[in-house]
Design a protein around this nucleic acid. Structure first.
Lengths: 199, 199
DNA sequence: CGAGTTATTAAGACCAGGTCCTAAGAGGAA
DNA sequence: TTCCTCTTAGGACCTGGTCTTAATAACTCG
């Protein structure tokens, strides 16, 4: 940033940079563009870019809210027997609305959602999401039937947990899957590493 | 919080509350527990809970980094023809490593990943993720075959984009899916609504 | 060229939400 | 009662701003 940019160009670049690196302070931005902190602040005002801490908060809230909402709405089926980090099961009683009106076959989405919901529930963290999934729909399920879903934690690698899931209807396997669940690290986890002040 | 809690109990509750609501200030926490701000700060120090702004930043960075990493690693296949908000296609040349060693059948995970990758690529936002997916594996794919994947944006509802995806090998449909892609809102989007200072 | 306008810079008061330090008061146990 | 722990209060200082005033530099136009 040796040469001076005109205002319009600088503001375009500023918007790009802040989108890519939302955690930069005004001082850091000023250094990047070779202008004063005050100029950056005027630019931000004109472009309606919030301050660093507001940006951070907006991102955190959006991410936290979305992921929580996602986790919340992914709670499909009744959890029966959950042992964090090991395994568990859940039961989903299917209804007419879950199926195609003509064939009564349950939409795969619901079967997937139950399995995913259970997989996610096995990970002990407030904020988690499914990164990848390997899925096999083996037999159709008809509305009115109950899906019994079992999951087992296969491996844990850092903040990634691999969970194998099998869904059955009357003992017959209708779905099998493998979910990789990612936990977003929080300070709770960090506490575990720095030792427990009491106990 | 009318009655006073002993220190141990209060610290347990504090940890829980901060995990559930990471954006509360020390003052707000002090009000919740009926103690002084200073006491909350001492508690936080003992429990190694960072201050509100640090917590926010940690969440934002973790979420931002994880989601970006996830989006990055979900780029499977070569994007051929992407029109943001409308549709596009991609090509995945399968290899031996993607399949089961005995049958040469490609693992569903890779097919899913290509489709998901393309769906996500159609949404114009730096931070996106797939909230839900409805998936149908129709025919096996064998290693060495090339998967041609096409996607089309069906509808947009706020920050949620519904994308339909079809994958083919030599003209035969091998996979079909419906992905709901969620975009995490940023201030860039907010600028679009507040008007452009310079046209 | 000069006048007017825009852009940039600087300085200061004040804010929010802390960290760090010192010290006094309250409460409980031996 | 003494001793210890916990709680509270106050102050200095920090970071990263917002808001205001004002001076200077650069640019545009007649």
């Amino acid at each position: 940033m040796v040469r001076r940019m005109n205002k319009k160009k600088r503001q375009e670049k500023l918007m790009e940079l802040v989108n890519q690196q939302p955690f930069l302070t005004d001082e850091e931005l000023a250094e990047q563009f070779g202008v004063s902190v005050q100029t950056i602040r005027l630019d931000r005002l004109e472009l309606s870019i919030p301050e660093m801490r507001e940006r951070t908060k907006a991102l955190a809230e959006a991410a936290y809210g979305q992921l929580r909402a996602m986790s919340g709405q992914e709670l499909v089926g009744q959890l029966l027997d959950v042992e964090l980090g090991k395994g568990g099961s859940s039961l989903l009683k299917t209804t007419e609305e879950m199926g195609f009106s003509k064939t009564k076959v349950i939409r795969g989405h619901h079967i997937f959602a139950q399995a995913n919901s259970l997989a996610v529930a096995l990970v002990d963290s407030p904020v988690v999401f499914t990164a990848t999934a390997e899925i096999h729909f083996l037999h159709p399920v008809y509305s009115g039937e109950s899906i019994f879903c079992q999951a087992e934690v296969v491996s844990v690698n850092g903040n990634r947990t691999l969970v194998e899931v099998k869904s059955k209807v009357s003992g017959r396997e209708v779905f099998a899957g493998r979910f990789e669940v990612v936990a977003i690290e929080t300070w709770d986890a960090a506490r575990g590493e720095t030792g427990n002040p009491e106990g």
